[in-house]
Amino acid sequence: MPTIKDVAKLAGVSTATVSRAMMSPEKVSEKTRLKVELAVAESGFSPNVIARNLRRSESKTIVIIVPDIANMFFASIVRGIQQVALQNGYKVLLGDSIHTVEQAKVYMDLVRSKQADGIISLTAELPMEIRQGTEIPMVMACEYFPGFPIPTVRIDNRGSAKRAVDYLLDIGHSQIGCITGPMENPICVDRKAGYQDSLQQLNIAVDEAAFEDGDFSFQSGYSAFMRLHEHYSMTALFCFNDMMALGAMKAATQLGIKVPQQLSIVGFDDLLFAEYTNPELTTIRQPQEDIGKTAANTLMKILQGSKASQDTIVPTQLLVRSSCCSPSK
């Protein structure tokens, strides 16, 4: 395999000059640069990747910011991003923002300091100035802000939530409780709107007592169900994610409420465990790996200087399993 010494010999220069010509071509004469390039081509030498990246001011690294690394929802999205990144010669750095804007900014600063080339953010907990636009090559995935000037890959949260509640109405439920996520989050605002759309199309009044907030965790689903059960009579429950649905299912079981005979439950996401619960969880499936791949391909276009889609909506699917049935008479 040809080495840098072979290139230096063919070009009639020192190995230091060869390195300089590849890493900082502006520091050598045009004549010397051309001699080195011809020698590289003639010898078949493959320049060191690090040297090539330094010359181009590239790190060949992208950063993925997740709000909570313990949340299994993000695993398949990260896998999809990594597959595309590796295919394009990029490494992936995974950063857990721990639901804090301050930590997200730390990872964003890696791009500003040229330690990374771009960012895919799976969290909306970002510095306020980012919402107005940024010079950082960046893509939002899953989370978004209405009118956000940065390319976004997401689902139709409003339409997907409406589909879930439509199903419960179709099988005879009208008293449908709802465990939301944090309502300052745009996707939660949209999912609540989808719930309301579904009831309103049948002229069913929306009762604010039907709602309890969670934070997408298993424990918050459990606690929210316990609170909801105290003041709202329901035959069905819609949860804004599968983790909270599983927590609610545990709470219902502890209270002696049979699922689905006395309470139908619908989740959102289709996490791996959803089809292995007892009963299996009816849910809205987000194509998590596809979301990751689409977000990564969008970022690759940006890094290559190509035009990227500003708002890509990935389709979801209602998966009907055994956690739902018609209400008992």
Rank of each mutant, 00 (worst) to 15 (best):
G267N: 11
T282A: 03
A252N: 01
I265G: 11
A274L: 12
F273M: 13
M243P: 06
L263H: 14
I257L: 14
Q261A: 13
F268E: 10
L263W: 06
N241S: 07
M244D: 10
A274Y: 12
I257A: 03
M249K: 01
V259T: 12
I257E: 00
F268K: 09
E280A: 14
Q261S: 10
D270K: 04
T253S: 14
K258T: 10
A274W: 05
F273Q: 00
Q254F: 15
D269W: 12
L281D: 01
G256F: 02
M243W: 08
A248K: 02
I257Y: 03
D242Q: 01
L281N: 08
L246I: 12
F240Y: 05
V259P: 11
T282C: 05
F273V: 13
T277E: 05
I265S: 10
P260L: 09
V266C: 01
M249H: 07
V266Y: 04
Y276M: 06
D269C: 05
F268A: 02
N278A: 13
G247A: 06
T277G: 09
M249E: 02
A245L: 02
G247H: 06
A252M: 04
L255N: 10
M249F: 12
A251H: 12
Y276C: 00
Q254V: 08
Q261Y: 08
F273K: 09
T253V: 12
P260A: 07
L271Y: 03
L263P: 07
P260G: 11
F273P: 06
F273I: 12
T253A: 14
F240G: 05
L271I: 13
